[in-house]
Nucleic acid binder design. Structure first.
Lengths: 219, 219
DNA sequence: ATAAAATTTTAGACTAATCTAAATATTCAA
DNA sequence: TTGAATATTTAGATTAGTCTAAAATTTTAT
């Protein structure tokens, strides 16, 4: 049987694997708020259970990866439920979904998904995998094509130019943020955003063309 | 912190306390499917945490009782959600609710209750305590006043006469059952029931007047 | 009232998950 | 390429929750 603890490790490894090039013991320890010694020990158990490929190469097996996606699926469906159905704010739901994601019943997950009318993304705009673990193909568009008033998620950049990335950094822009388009200036194509419900940011058309977004739920 | 394990013990003791005169180690062991040794050990911990009055008198303290009612409240609200909102059958929901009842967030429980429009009973007809632990006053009526087509829960008997109880036993009638009124004969006041969605039972008016029921949800 | 039966507690052991401290291995920079 | 810094593993302990087997206690029936 897979414990809640193991599920949390698998989820952490999945997320780290998405961003970091190679996942390390200390990165997992940092993320899980555990000591490296505990992580090292746990990795042995995950290997014995066939959830990671190797102790020296912390990569999920197919089985581990499927498990991770099931947990993420449940987490995101429950977050969607909490916001859409129970009127929670989109930034209040994480800790509750962390508990609900471990409830075991595939029928429950499917019924919840049906009730929510098969959402493609959660309230943070993150994609929800289907029951086979496939993520939806979210249509990615440049910020310059965004519609005023709508909510989007910052997904990727079209260039890696150092001064461009530096510019984003100065503006406080980071991947995964939720951007609401406040207004779009037809004259020069500049855009005014509300970032994470907190800061207003102005961007020129030149910049907006190089920022890729996808539509995030809950406008 | 109170673990899921402890919550399950407290719930078991609460339920046993409702029916049995005195709760014993072996009764708890039987109900929890654990060895008496484990239960004995756990009772020490429950006492240390102030959840039971005494090791020789297994009775919940006010704190323990409140905790039990919170768990029962969550269990019954989730069962109601599963049946009313996600279209589960009323006999499929127990094991899922056993997991959901341990999710910790009083705000979640209150929002769920509001979403369900403050139900007084769960799909089995069991009463749902409010957030202060008070059970609703379900209006108890004799079976002779039941309305055809509606669903009720068998709650109590108006007499303890031995041959009367024996008669109920012969008909397979037990407290807590869900009774759907199939028809009521105006001529002689006799009643035809469907017991727990399984057996049809005919009862005379004389018997029906001595059986107390309350309305159970989900007709 | 006392012996047998039943119940409960204690003792000692196990597993999962964690820790700290120490040992070992790896990386990286001069 | 070698020594310092960093990262990882091992060793030994701890806690919660469980077990079996044995000891102690309580109940019950004669």
């Amino acid at each position: 049987m897979i414990s809640t603890t193991i599920e949390n490790y698998i989820k952490a490894i999945f997320y780290l694997g998405e961003t970091a090039t190679n996942v390390t013991v200390s990165a997992v320890a940092e993320r899980m708020q555990n000591s490296p010694a505990s992580v090292s020990d746990m990795l042995r158990r995950l290997y014995e259970k066939g959830l990671i490929e190797d102790k020296n190469n912390i990569t999920l097996t197919d089985q581990g990866s499927f498990l991770a996606k099931q947990i993420i699926r449940k987490h995101r469906l429950w977050e969607t439920f909490l916001v859409k159905t129970l009127d929670f704010k989109w930034d209040e739901v994480h800790s509750i979904a962390e508990q609900l994601e471990h409830v075991q019943s595939s029928l429950l997950t499917e019924r919840l998904e049906r009730f929510l009318e098969y959402p493609e993304t959660d309230p943070h705009g993150d994609p929800i995998p289907d029951k086979d673990g496939n993520f939806p193909n979210l249509s990615i568009i440049p910020l310059s094509e965004a519609e005023p008033g709508k909510s989007y998620i910052f997904r990727s950049v079209a260039t890696d130019a150092k001064d461009f990335l530096n510019h984003l950094d100065n503006k406080g822009l980071q991947l995964g943020q939720r951007w609401v388009i406040i207004e779009k200036e037809e004259f020069d194509g500049s855009v005014k955003l509300l970032v994470d419900d907190k800061n207003e940011v102005y961007l020129s058309e030149k910049v907006a063309k190089n920022l890729n977004i996808c539509s995030g739920q809950l406008d």
